[in-house]
Design a protein around this nucleic acid. Structure first.
Lengths: 159, 159
DNA sequence: CTTTTGTACGACTCATTTGATCGGAGATTA
DNA sequence: TAATCTCCGATCAAATGAGTCGTACAAAAG
């Protein structure tokens, strides 16, 4: 129920990985390639490649072609929110079809629908939640060796 | 993305309908049957029937058999939350598989997963949101007040 | 300049989930 | 007691998503 798609999962993992390596050593930001990420997290390479291509197309990451190539973050980790990632990979998020449909394309129940208004509020709240959490916030919670330097210099999620 | 299933939609509509008719006249609570609801909202009768059966099995509504039979609310509208309805119809809600799996059934990425912790917080926030909104809030009476409290009460990740 | 290595990109196939349907069993009213 | 209306479990078809394959392109190495 309300489960995220694999593409979304893989995309978030990859972004976290790229961000960690890029900010672990700022002077010479490491370019990470698809194969490296795929092997690290046991993700099918071709599928991950497709995900990264989509993210690159939207500008969240930059692709560098050729040998020694790979991906680099396109924006600051503070500017990349979970909502952005999900929408880029899976289209606009809405808990109901009719909440983001165009005019004249109503669902069968629209006429007497009695749950549209309350669910719209729920949807907005969820979006606000996802849009308030950035990639930066996601880097603080996992004490990995490679990103320890990052964790010490900036604390992530505050509540 | 993050779309609710048809069963969930139909279930919420039906519950709202049942609650409205029962709440409108408490002394002789009207028993509404499947066909009536299906026609009102243009829902396939057989599918709606299945949804109502599931809800009845969990105790959220009571089924009365025979002619003049139908369904009745099993609990107070205040005690029925959206989260309860969704979980009864679609199983435990989790934005990721690994967040409610049993021991020894880890996903492939679990070993080096770097997004588990932050996403767990997101999931908890969403659950809290859905569990704080009741059927009472969804009824026509005073939707604005109750819903607004939910939106402001959301315990998201603030920065 | 040629070769080699690795990425980018599109189309395709397969599996899982979801939506919808059918026929039978049980219960209540007349 | 019989007829009618409902609940209920099992089954089938469609849609969505996960994953794969093969080709084209770009850059570093020889």
């Amino acid at each position: 129920m309300l489960k995220l798609s694999k593409k979304a999962d893989y995309g978030l993992m990859a972004l976290q990985h790229i961000a960690s390596h890029q900010f672990g050593d700022v002077t010479r930001a490491r370019v990470v390639n698809t194969k490296e990420i795929a092997e690290e997290y046991n993700i099918p390479v071709e599928l991950l490649a497709k995900v990264l291509q989509t993210l690159a197309k939207s500008g969240l990451i930059e692709s560098h072609n050729g040998p020694k190539g790979g991906y680099l973050l396109g924006k600051s980790p503070r500017e990349i929110t979970i909502a952005q990632v999900l929408e880029n990979l899976e289209g606009p998020l809405g808990i109901m079809d009719c909440l983001h449909e165009k005019e004249g394309d109503f669902c069968m129940q629209r006429e007497h629908c009695n749950i549209r208004t309350p669910l719209l509020k729920v949807q907005n709240s969820i979006y606000q939640l996802l849009n308030s959490m950035t990639l930066q916030d996601m880097m603080g919670g996992t004490p990995l060796i490679t990103i320890r330097s990052v964790a010490t210099e900036q604390q992530g999620v505050e509540r």
